[in-house]
Simulated assay, not measured.
Amino acid sequence: MGKSSKMEDDFEGEVKLISNVHHRNLVRLLGCCIKGRERILVYEYMANSSLDKFIFGSRRGSLNWKQRYHIILGTARGLAYLHEEFHVSIIHRDIKTANILLDDDLQPKIADFGGYTAPEYAMHGQLSEKADTYSYGIVVLEIMILFVCHCM
């Protein structure tokens, strides 16, 4: 099997896996396209863009504490689903404010979660949910600390 054929198979496998993941705190995959070397994933539209805009960018300081709390809790629920509730463990590998999107009601949806890991790979300690948990902790600190700093 050639390199490009394997890449196509891997991409298609990831798309099939992601298209079966349904949770209120995960961005829904609507479709995909393969054209030559380009691979495009089409996700649902998130009206409020990503959390990083509210923490570091142009909308900095516009979230109140209740909204921040719901974003923290919703993100945790989405990660718990990926790690424990889906039929295979999905390790995100890139939890950060830019990958937490916010819908019309500022509810969080995790994006870019194509990090499926074969169980035998995860069992040997090379990759585990701990990486996501650590990154999630950093996101929580950013949300809390920057909220406190903005209020002072």
Rank of each mutant, 00 (worst) to 15 (best):
E14H: 06
I90A: 05
Y45F: 15
D105L: 04
L141G: 06
K53F: 14
I138F: 06
R24T: 05
R28H: 08
R28Q: 11
T133A: 10
Q107N: 09
S62N: 12
I91W: 01
A80E: 14
F113P: 02
S89L: 08
H22G: 00
I100E: 01
I100G: 03
S19W: 03
V88D: 01
R28K: 11
D9L: 14
S135L: 11
F56Q: 05
L29S: 01
M144W: 05
T133Y: 07
L82E: 01
R68Y: 09
I91P: 01
D105H: 09
K66V: 13
L41F: 14
A131S: 15
L146I: 11
I138Q: 10
E38F: 09
D103R: 06
Y43T: 01
D103N: 15
L41C: 13
A98K: 15
E120L: 06
E129M: 12
G115Y: 04
S62W: 04
G115S: 11
P119Q: 08
G61S: 04
I34P: 02
N99R: 08
I18P: 03
F113M: 04
L101N: 03
Q126D: 10
R59T: 02
L106C: 05
L30P: 03
S50R: 02
F86P: 01
K6L: 10
Y45N: 12
P108L: 01
I71N: 05
K16V: 05
G137T: 02
E14G: 06
L79I: 11
G78T: 04
L79D: 04
L26N: 03
I145G: 09
L51C: 11
H92K: 06
F86I: 00
T133E: 12
P119I: 09
Q126K: 12
G125T: 10
M144D: 06
V140R: 08
N48K: 15
R77E: 12
H83A: 08
S5W: 08
I110V: 15
T117W: 00
A76F: 13
F113A: 01
N48F: 07
P108C: 05
S128G: 09
R59D: 09
H23W: 00
A122E: 11
F113K: 01
R28P: 04
M46A: 12
D9T: 14
H70E: 14
K16R: 13
H22K: 01
L146Q: 12
